[in-house]
Nucleic acid binder design. Structure first.
Length: 506
RNA sequence: CGGGGCGUAGCUCAGCCUGGUAGAGCGCCUGCUUUGGGAGCAGGAAGUCGUCGGUUCGAAUCCGGCCGCCCCGACCA
């Protein structure tokens, strides 16, 4: 193999979107299905989702939430209750209109066709999100201030009839969690919105090694029906932005529309303040675009379906069994004795009867953080061959087995830290301050323009104009930057303490 | 929903213009060789050529309807 050959063709530099597709394929994460816009998530990819689920769910429970489950089908009339909300999703709803099929034989061809029949009096919409149907339940559950706060989360699938699907990033059906809460006061609801926003930021940083810019969406970019939308924005390797998670303060918009009311401490009937927040399988797409390289996927250790893969090297038949035994023994020791952030290590022995090189490259493409090779010589010298996914494919070290055992979880943490640092450096290098119009316009003519941070005091209309002109959006008003030194807005010249972050996005 | 392109083996595609009834590479299976390595050689399995209809002695190939997919826009977690 020549030194410049990569496992993935094309490379990121050659064709980023195609590279992405090839990584998904090479890592065996998911594939397109017969159903338009919907993907089949394969075990290696679903394993990542399961880990995301487990670890996020733990945080939700720690912050006082409980899981529940609500129907997939929402009566059409529910979507008519909150006008803005309905309008926001109207163009991407799948509608269920019939409840049975009738077999009909075509006399000419002899084939049987199934004809929908039994039309429903009121159609159902397959949930694009569940505010309305959960709100209806909340209306029944909330009677008194003593019923509040109501802190519910649901793990579910939703469907949005997207025009241009892309594996993980934008599929018609996707998996997510949606938190829905109801509170007595605005302050409490906003505190909840901010809390979950922070949970997302920490999760992305500490579990996925993705640094994000936390901030607030402008009115133009808000969730339909929300008073405030908080977002975590990730920058991926083509310098585009991906909204990795959102947390919304819904004010009393939904509670008024759906009558989520309660008798307050002073005996007055009031409307609850509600929130909703969610992350989806899109995070897997974000993770790929943030960390993968020209040899395939690179998994942050905490969400790696397997963290360590041990490849037996069996050149001779007479030492084969001893090598296999040594591999299994090491795997078992790692599983039983080592923990990474509280979870037992996930270790796999790849004993398949394939050539070593084939196996090695397969695990590189699948992004396994640590590869171990053990052969007859290593058994004699009591060493192991250690290779890391954050280093070159042919880089290897030969520590004593005992030393490796002692330091295995440290290596995982080092890999996590290295991924995070690399991504953070990249992001920081590609957020450019900009305080006047000329360079702003010029910036977006570049190929992969990165983000601009500007003083901003423009109106929604002015924002929209700039957005359309350059195919950009205000990704967010970054959280820590809304009390900056007063400066003239780059567009209007009005003095402002606020800063806006502009970029192209997925 | 507008503008382009394409549906042929599991995958990527050639063949279509100039109709004569199906090919390559990769993958898969078998055998031999190789073995700290994404190997080599030999053999093999696998396609009602998206679908319905028309023209023709004969259609993957020509004509029409339908269905689906991809790319560029509008829309979006």
């Amino acid at each position: 193999m020549s030194a410049d050959k990569t496992a993935i063709t094309p490379t990121r530099a050659q064709d980023f979107p195609e590279w992405y597709q090839q990584v998904v394929k090479a890592a065996d994460l998911a594939e397109n299905s017969e159903t338009r816009g919907c993907m089949v998530i394969k075990p290696w990819g679903y394993g990542i989702w399961e880990l995301i689920q487990q670890q996020l769910d733990r945080r939700f429970k720690e912050t006082g939430h409980q899981n529940a489950y609500f129907p997939l089908l929402i009566p059409l009339s529910y979507l008519e209750k909150e006008a803005e909300h309905a309008e926001g999703f109207a163009t991407e709803c799948a509608v269920v209109t019939h409840h049975r099929l009738e077999a009909q034989k075509d006399e000419a061809t002899g084939k049987t066709k199934m004809i929908p029949t039994g039309e429903l009096a009121e159609p159902y919409v397959i949930r694009p999100t569940s505010e309305t149907i959960i709100g209806a339940a909340f209306a029944r559950w909330v009677q008194s201030y003593r019923d509040l706060p109501l802190l519910i989360n649901q793990w579910a699938n939703v469907m949005r009839w997207e025009m241009r699907p892309r594996l993980f990033l934008r599929t018609a059906e996707f998996l997510w969690q949606e938190g829905h809460t109801a509170h007595e006061t605005k302050e409490e609801a906003i505190a909840e919105t901010r809390l979950m926003h922070r949970v997302y930021e920490e999760f992305l940083r500490d579990h996925l090694a993705i640094p994000v810019v936390p901030g607030e969406k402008t009115e133009n970019e808000r969730f339909p029906g929300a008073d405030m939308t908080l977002t975590v924005e990730a920058m991926v390797q083509d310098k585009k932005a991906i909204q990795a998670g959102t947390s919304h303060y819904l004010g009393q918009n939904f509670s008024k529309a759906q009558d989520i009311s309660f008798t307050s401490r002073d005996g007055v009937v009031q409307y609850a303040h509600t929130t909703s927040w969610g992350v989806s399988t899109r995070m897997i797409g974000t993770l790929i675009m943030a960390h993968a390289d020209d040899d395939g996927l690179v998994l942050p250790p905490r969400v790696a379906t397997q963290q360590i893969v041990i490849i037996p090297v069996t050149p001779k038949e007479d030492t084969r069994q001893a090598v296999l035994d040594a591999c299994h023994a090491l795997a078992e020791t790692l599983r039983l004795e080592k923990k990474f952030h509280g979870d037992p290590l996930r270790v796999h022995v790849d004993a398949r009867d394939l050539q070593g090189g084939v196996k090695k490259w397969e695990w590189i493409k699948k992004g396994v953080p640590i590869r171990i090779e053990i052969g007859p010589r290593d058994i004699e010298t009591r060493k192991v061959c250690v290779q890391r996914r954050d280093q070159a494919p042919n880089a290897k070290e030969f520590p004593d087995k005992e030393d490796f055992l002692r330091g295995a979880t440290d290596i995982l943490q080092e890999i996590h830290d290295a991924l995070l640092r690399r991504a953070a450096d990249f992001r920081d290098a590609n957020i450019i301050p900009c305080d006047s119009l000329e360079p702003f316009h010029a910036h977006w003519a570049q190929d992969n323009p990165g983000w601009l941070l500007t003083p901003w005091a423009g109106t929604s209309g002015e924002e929209e104009e700039l957005s359309k002109r350059h195919k950009i959006t205000i990704r967010c008003l970054p959280l820590g930057k809304q009390d900056a030194p007063e400066a003239p807005c780059f567009l209007t010249g009005k003095p402002t303490k606020s800063r806006a972050l502009w970029g192209r996005s997925y």
